[in-house]
């Protein structure tokens, strides 16, 4: 009996150590970023390097909020609007589509299901040129301003994340027992009603997953934001980061501070919504 307890404790310690090791490996570069962000210029390139700064300064962070040096809040706002819009639309557009995949029979379903992933087979770097061309033509045809707007980015990011969203949601919807929907329909619900009243309430984890995924893609995307955004007041955070990193007068501390601040929203979003993601199916598990 004593050895049983001791073994359990030893196992728990081992597991704890392994978890700690994994967490350390994941977070270590961020610790380095934090350390560098608190160092004054010159200290970050000294040898031997020290993780704990010899001198601490908050000037790097303060500089980021000085509009003469770096309009952080403006970039943040732009990124936030674009990412929230893209993430919300991702759910609105993908849920009906995924339901169609999961529950409805229609001609061409197999083709679209298999084909949707082929959207990813062309590298973004090379697609940007014909896409930009297409947008310019569309802009001229419709006499509508598209380039240098948040709208074009939102729609672009939405389109990027749709295949995965449809896929994730479709798989998830299939695991919801059909009996629930059938009984709802017998009670007089239409298909769209079913989506609204049955599927969505039961899909919390998947919806959160899609939201976070789309938000993250939109938040961090650089190439298309580079090509489409022109005016300084429209730029997003990734473009701001590039500005800090590629300038001749780069300051390591500022670069790292900006990096951390840019990572914070997405990580916080995930932490806040995490419990919804792992709530698991509330409607039974896998039968038989």
């Amino acid at each position: 009996m004593v050895t049983q307890v001791a073994r359990k404790r030893w196992e728990r310690i081992l597991v704890g150590a392994r978890i700690a090791a994994v967490l350390l490996a994941c977070v270590f570069p961020f610790i380095v970023m934090l350390s560098v962000s608190l160092k004054p210029p010159g200290d970050e390139t000294t040898y031997p390097p020290s993780l704990i700064p010899r001198r601490i300064t908050f000037k790097n962070y303060a500089d980021l909020f000085n509009p003469r040096l770096f309009p952080f809040m403006r970039y943040f706002q732009n990124s936030m609007v674009v990412a929230l819009a893209a993430a919300s639309l991702a759910i609105i557009v993908a849920v009906p589509g995924a339901y169609a995949f999961a529950r409805l029979k229609f001609a061409g379903r197999e083709l679209v299901q298999r084909g949707i992933l082929s959207a990813y087979m062309f590298s973004g770097v090379l697609l940007v040129v014909p896409y930009y061309r297409a947008v310019i033509r569309l802009q001229e045809a419709l006499s509508v301003q598209l380039v240098d707007t948040k709208l074009v980015l939102v729609l672009t990011y939405l389109a990027f994340t749709l295949p995965v969203s449809l896929y994730m949601l479709g798989n998830y919807f299939r695991t919801i027992p059909a009996e629930i929907e059938e009984s709802a329909m017998i009670d007089g619900c239409t298909r769209t009603g079913v989506i609204w009243r049955v599927i969505i309430p039961l899909s919390g984890p998947a919806l959160v997953a899609v939201f976070i995924y789309a938000f993250m893609i939109a938040w961090n995307e650089y190439l298309f934001a580079l090509v489409f955004l022109i005016s300084p007041e429209k730029l997003t955070l990734p473009r701001g980061l590039a500005e800090l990193f590629n300038t001749q007068h780069y300051i390591w501390g500022r670069m790292m501070a900006a990096s951390l601040l840019t990572a914070v929203p997405v990580v916080s979003l995930f932490l806040a919504l995490e419990r919804f993601m792992t709530a698991g199916l509330t409607v039974g598990g896998v039968k038989e």
Binding site: V128, V129, Y132, R133
Partner: peptide, 12 residues
């Protein structure tokens, strides 16, 4: 990034 921008602009 200038080359990327010039290329996409030229194509369009």
């Amino acid at each position: 990034d200038m080359r990327t921008k010039l290329t996409t602009a030229q194509a369009a």
